[in-house]
Simulated scan of single mutants.
Amino acid sequence: MLTMQGACWLCLQALKLTHHGICSFCLRKLPSMPICCLCCGLPTEHNHLACGRCLQHPPSWQRLISVSPYQPPLRKLIHHYKFNPQPQLAFVLARVFVLHWLKGYRQHFWCKPQRLITIPSHPKRLWMRGFDHIASIGEYLSNWLNIPYSRNSLLRTRDTLAQITLKRNYRHSNLNGAFTLTGSVVGQHIAIIDDVLTTGATMQTAAQLLICAGAQTVQAWTICRTL
């Protein structure tokens, strides 16, 4: 995916504010999430209640906030951001999320956390990619929402297999002991940031670690959710 400087990444039309990356028309046309469970983000009949799946097996986080289903055009944009050297897309994707978050916050759909933490990558992956793609998004969200961001509070202690290559029933075991916490989170309301939530195994492992360490609540923030 290539774009001209000053053009929308999605429709390639010229932008009045070139740094925005996506024009207002494309923003309005992004696929919205259907009526979903407030915990797992999967379709249900009531978006203000936990679904039967979450009542039986609740995740370690209390609220999931996602902008769009994991489908075009954001799926292609996220893939391009992660696997091609285009770190400038961090601003674009962070802006997509923050506009969605602010709309819901003003309507009292969710509350503001006290601290932001991002899902970390292993140093080997960072070296291969050249930058920390989730941390870059976290820094923008921290500045725009005025929420402290702890970049190194959550660390990945071993290089796990890529989750996308594994079957669902192997994804949780792949992450056993993958993260460690370096600071105190006792009594804090925390949001964990990732780009996409698929099975939720990565987010579950990180959130469970925070809750066991004394965090009061955990929100899961993702740009997209696989439905």
Rank of each mutant, 00 (worst) to 15 (best):
C8V: 04
K16V: 15
C23L: 03
S24P: 01
K29A: 15
P34E: 00
C36S: 15
L38P: 03
L42M: 10
P43S: 12
E45F: 09
L49V: 11
C51M: 08
Q56N: 14
P58N: 00
R63H: 14
L64N: 03
S66M: 05
Y70E: 13
P72N: 05
P73W: 03
P73Y: 02
I78M: 01
H79T: 05
H80S: 14
N84Q: 15
P85F: 10
A90E: 06
F97M: 10
F97Q: 05
F97G: 11
L99W: 07
W101L: 09
K103P: 01
R115H: 12
I117K: 00
I119T: 04
H122R: 04
P123R: 03
R125Y: 02
L126W: 08
H133N: 09
G138V: 02
E139V: 04
W144F: 13
P148C: 06
S150M: 03
R151A: 15
S153Q: 14
L155M: 11
T157F: 00
R158A: 06
R158M: 09
T160A: 13
L161G: 00
K167M: 06
S173E: 07
N176F: 02
G183P: 00
H189I: 10
T199F: 13
A201L: 09
M203R: 07
Q204T: 10
T205W: 00
A206E: 04
A206L: 05
A215S: 09
V218A: 02
I223F: 12
